[in-house]
């Protein structure tokens, strides 16, 4: 019955074939998650898939590892999307936005995949060590959703070398030491670029939409 919609008729497929990625305001993604959680709504799920599928695939392909392959990336898309469906009711819009949640699931699935490829047997899974579905809830997270959009703006305005390091760390799965080794930068420079990026985020969040003077900081990066 689940399949009829997809294989039988066209609406869902048409939806999937649209190339443009619809950008939605955050609460619309959250509303889709709610439809999945409460009504097992496949149409909502297909919208989530269309948007996040390519992100997850890119995330899989970006991993700095000998185990990275297109097959691995496709498997990652499947694993992550199945979790999104099965764990939809754990998504709490007041705690995180949908992309933060999907990012965390993708990270965990990628860790488990790597562990499997390396034939490491462990009593714990990534979900035990990086809890996504039972996150301990600090009290002051209420503002985080609000700040999500601001963070996006600020990340867009960071100097390219800071963005490059954010990418290597968060997407390519490199430790700080690996980034330093591969870029030839001293570890201290790697850490200071990340710290500067974070400080900028923090300052901007605190000031809350006020103009931040002197957003171009180019002095920190030439320490090697």
């Amino acid at each position: 019955m689940l399949l009829e919609n997809i294989t039988g008729s066209t609406p869902v497929l048409q939806w999937l074939s649209m190339d443009q990625k619809p950008e939605k305001p955050k609460d619309e993604w959250a509303a889709l998650m709610l439809r999945i959680a409460q009504h097992r709504d496949e149409e909502a799920f297909s919208q989530i898939f269309s948007h996040f599928g390519p992100k997850i695939k890119a995330y899989g392909l970006s991993l700095n590892s000998m185990h990275t392959s297109p097959e691995m990336a496709d498997e990652l898309v499947q694993e992550v999307m199945i979790k999104v469906w099965e764990k939809a009711r754990y998504f709490k819009p007041e705690k995180a936005n949908v992309s933060t949640w999907v990012f965390a699931i993708a990270r965990n699935c990628r860790i488990d995949y790597l562990r499997k490829m390396k034939r490491i047997t462990s009593p714990l899974t990534a979900d035990d060590l990086w809890p996504v579905f039972e996150e301990p809830v600090p009290e002051d997270l209420a503002d985080l959703d609000k700040s999500g959009q601001q963070i996006e703006k600020i990340v867009d305005n960071l100097p390219t070398e800071q963005v490059a390091i954010l990418r290597e760390v968060y997407i390519e799965g490199k430790t700080h030491a690996e980034v330093a080794r591969q870029t030839g930068l001293p570890l201290g420079t790697v850490k200071s670029r990340l710290r500067l990026a974070m400080e900028k985020l923090r300052v901007n969040l605190v000031i809350d939409d006020a103009e931040v003077p002197g957003s171009s900081q180019s002095t920190q990066s030439t320490t090697n």
Binding site: K55, Y59, K95, A96, N97, S99, T100, V102, F103, A104, A106, R107, P138, L141, L144, S147, G148, I151, E152, V155, V163, L166, R167, Y170, I171, A197, M198, L201, R202
Partner: peptide
Amino acid sequence: AELGAVGSVVFE
């Protein structure tokens, strides 16, 4: 949580 939000922007 904040670092996760940053990661998700890079992810997006």
